[in-house]
């Protein structure tokens, strides 16, 4: 005997459907509100570039924190990426393709993809989280409000130098990472594979185009801008206490990583 719908069951289904629609609505409106706030922050940041006297003193310290302090971790990752690339390329190509294509694979992959993207993701975790946590803490402890009270423009003082520093330093770190990654792959090919230096260099040069380096720089600039901007936005949007700081930090890292991968695909489709 088939069960029949009861008024109570019908009401439960109706509340669930309504709740789902409400969640979608809240998500859409919240997303649009976030886009609006991000746009407002972007406009404010753009305007604050005119206040050179406010952000310029902060630029060098932020470049040191965002770029110089990130060099070791970026080079560490690039070094082992280069080694792994070389070994895996050799493992894949041996017996089918001449081994000098290991050089092609290492150089092309490091310059076009792994160098900027891995550096971006790494710095999204390190720099983005750092900026978001710092600004979030300042927000929840009302230090940002204190700056406003003291007639400081928090965007010019806090956001502009960080975004500029990230935009400038990300490509620098990425270029160093690419260089070190290729060099480590070269050393691995010489020491761990049956390859000569001439073979590897031949592969490096075989399909190299100077545009590849420009592509790497363009991607890194966009990644630096995104990581620092998202970090600043999430930090300044922090609500609540320490828990809110944690949430904003997590949100900044996740959003930065997703945007980096999205931009990676966009740049590949547009520029290559």
């Amino acid at each position: 005997m088939r069960p029949t719908a009861t008024p109570h069951r019908t009401a439960t289904v109706g509340r669930g459907l309504f709740g789902g629609l409400a969640a979608v609505g809240r998500g859409v409106s919240g997303g649009l509100a976030g886009v609006g706030r991000a746009s407002r922050l972007g406009v404010a940041a753009g305007r604050s570039l005119g206040k050179v006297g406010m952000w310029a003193p902060q630029l060098s310290p932020q470049m040191a924190r965002v770029g110089v302090a990130s060099v070791p971790i970026a080079l560490f990752i690039a070094t082992f990426t280069g080694i792994v690339m070389s070994l895996q390329a050799s493992y894949t190509l041996t017996g089918t393709i001449p081994l000098y294509f290991v050089g092609v694979l290492v150089s092309k992959t490091m310059i076009l993809e792994l160098g900027p993207v891995l550096t971006g993701l790494t710095l999204a975790g390190r720099v983005g989280a750092n900026i978001s946590a710092e600004l979030g803490t300042m927000r929840v402890t009302e230090q940002v409000d204190a700056l406003e009270t003291l007639a400081y423009d928090p965007v010019a003082y806090l956001v502009a130098p960080r975004v500029l520093a990230g935009t400038i330093m990300f490509p620098v770190v990425a270029l160093l990472a690419v260089t070190v990654g290729i060099a480590s792959g070269w050393v691995a090919a010489l020491q761990l594979l049956d390859m000569s230096s001439a073979e590897f260099v031949k592969g490096l040069r075989l399909f190299f185009e100077p545009w590849d380096v420009w592509f790497c720089v363009i991607k890194s600039v966009s990644f630096g801008f995104v990581v620092t901007s998202v970090g600043c936005f999430c930090g300044l949007s922090t609500r609540g206490g320490a828990e809110g700081v944690g949430r904003s930090t997590t949100r900044a890292v996740v959003a930065s990583s997703m945007i980096i991968l999205f931009l990676d695909a966009v740049w590949a489709a547009v520029l290559l």
Binding site: M169, V172, L175, L176, V213
Partner: peptide
């Protein structure tokens, strides 16, 4: 500041010289 400058110059030099050498 010197450290930042050194890192920037090093990165730019790495990109330029590497490109010229490979090309």
């Amino acid at each position: 500041d010197a450290l930042v400058g050194a890192v920037v110059i090093l990165g730019v030099l790495a990109g330029i010289t590497g490109s010229v050498w490979l090309a």
